[in-house]
Design a binder for these strands. Structure first.
Lengths: 328, 328
DNA sequence: CTGTTAGCGCGTTCAC
DNA sequence: GTGAACGCGCTAACAG
């Protein structure tokens, strides 16, 4: 850790405004603005342009975002509201793709971990005022309303990949293998609950449609890898659970590792299926894979379309496929 | 994906300003500001307060961040400049802790994936103007200078945990086990290169100090789990590498899984040591563990201290310890 | 006590 | 190429 303060004893550095540049260059503020923004159809001599630019650089002028935004009535900010950092492999990939695409169009992608309990949307808007908000379905009805009522556009990427659909695929595969009592492994992280519930609902549907009992839900805490209670709950019952849908591959891997320490084996004593097909899943996790690039592409297209006032692109791609390995 | 646009046919909603609220409530703009901000020592009747608040709510007024920031000369934004999303377990934990601590003090933490190739700091400042920037040492000299020259404060969390120190711990442990030819497994992700190089430097130091040859560096690509070339490079040489320091546990896990598919075993045919002690490492990865909570605490303290103009807190904690499992 | 007037901050852009 | 008004919220000075 390096505290960097340079030589600012008490009063901090004064901002260098475009007026300072204008004064130093001996031109008007309007000229400075036109030059620095490359405004077309403004006949400004090359000499003046160079003078303004060099003066700005010499003085260390940086445009001041709030003033610019206030005057133009809009920001070039896209705010991604996430339910927590490190939400997952796919998510991070999509954010990276979005970041690059937006940078090329002069927008900045900002990621904020928003929680209603911590701060309201209204209060957040007093701190940052985005042109567009990207969410993952993690907003309450009130929050959605607040965003929609503000001048910000809203793109909800929830549903590009149907989470219930993923749960359905897991369950359908397990039933096709002859299982009749399913379990569901929830992650311990509360931020992931929303997603997990959504996947679980798909598993529930399939069980209900097949006339089977509800899936037995247990938490497999990612942090402390003690899965004994969960495994006991699944196996020590009159009609034992024989196969478990894990929220994702990470949960599946923790579960599988735990089974091994108990002298049990995934795919033999208990079938386990994950979601995501993360790289490490290659060690033997049967999983529902999601096509990252296609997914990221749709997210990017959706956001850009909304920014351009174009209709939202078709989102009915097929991003899911089953990868069968030894765990189920 | 749901495109949410409500009923805004062509022209989008006009902003509801505090002037609108003042007009509707029949009071002055000043009164509105005093009420909504709970400014002390302002004797405003309870009736007026309620009137203003209810009117603001009825009209759906939200404070407009740029105007507020322009007037007050400062924002309440903390910008974390990261070299990529999904940088790692520890990082995400620290960001979450920071987010919570900052929210309690009226600041918003925004995470931005910044790359010099995509946009300069100067241009970024035209889009968002933070009060403080948190980095992980990923800035170039020019970028550092730009940040330091702006009115934003800068806290660099690089070095809270010494990356070379981590590499040293890995190497020292392996040498203590009798190994004399070390390898280093780099991650494929270019965003992680900076960190990996730093860890590698520690390994290099230890080898040099012990009079041993340089560690043999190979990339273990996280995305495509084919580790055969890397393993071949380590083993197929006159003096084979017998132990590998992996950049982190994820890399170690991919490597271990790859070894297994080759009919080899980590800890037997090749020793492997990771970093982070991620949950899944419990399956048997020997690793350098980092105390997350202590680390996050120092990050939070450093940022809050800088915001409060207090001196940076002591950072000389000991966050590292070795966890020996079966992989080395 | 209760509330108002007026000017500011900084970059943008219309009219000249 | 310039002058000047503007956007929106904050707050010192002031008035009933």
């Amino acid at each position: 850790m390096t505290a960097v303060d340079g030589d600012r004893p008490a009063g901090r550095r004064r901002r260098v405004t475009s007026a300072d540049v204008a004064r130093a260059a001996g031109v008007s503020r309007a000229t400075v603005s036109y030059v620095l923004n490359d405004v077309p159809n403004r006949n400004i001599s090359q000499a003046t342009r160079e003078l303004v630019r060099s003066t700005a650089k010499r003085l260390g002028h940086m445009p001041y975002a709030p003033a610019r935004a206030l005057r133009s009535g809009r920001t070039n900010l896209v705010l991604a509201l996430v339910p927590g950092f490190g939400i997952g492999f796919l998510f991070d990939k999509a954010l990276d793709a979005l970041n690059t695409a937006l940078a090329a169009r002069g927008y900045a992608l900002l990621v904020h971990h928003h929680a209603e309990a911590l701060r309201s949307i209204t209060d957040l808007w007093g701190l940052v005022s985005p042109a567009l908000v990207v969410t993952t379905g993690g907003l309450s009805a009130d929050e959605r309303a607040a965003v929609e009522y503000s001048e910000a556009r809203l793109v909800d990427v929830d549903g590009i990949v149907s989470f219930p659909r993923i749960g359905r695929m897991q369950a359908e595969y397990l039933l096709s293998k002859g299982h009749r009592r399913l379990g569901f492994a929830m992650p311990g992280d509360p931020h992931l609950q929303v997603f997990a519930d959504s996947r679980l609902s798909g598993v529930r549907q399939v069980c209900a449609e097949a006339g089977l009992p509800e899936p037995v839900v247990e938490v497999v805490d990612f942090e402390r890898a003690d899965v004994r209670p969960a495994v006991a709950s699944w196996r020590d019952r009159p009609e034992p659970v024989t196969a478990v849908c894990a929220h994702n591959d990470d949960v599946a891997l923790v579960l599988m590792a735990g089974l091994e320490t108990m002298g049990l084996r995934a795919g033999v004593d208990l079938d386990v299926i994950g979601v995501d097909n993360v790289p490490i899943a290659a060690i033997g996790v049967t999983t529902v894979a999601i096509d990252i690039d296609a997914l990221a592409g749709v997210v990017v297209d959706s956001v850009l379309a909304e920014l351009d006032d174009r209709p939202a692109p078709d989102r009915d791609g097929e991003f899911l496929h089953l990868v069968v390995r030894r765990s189920a």
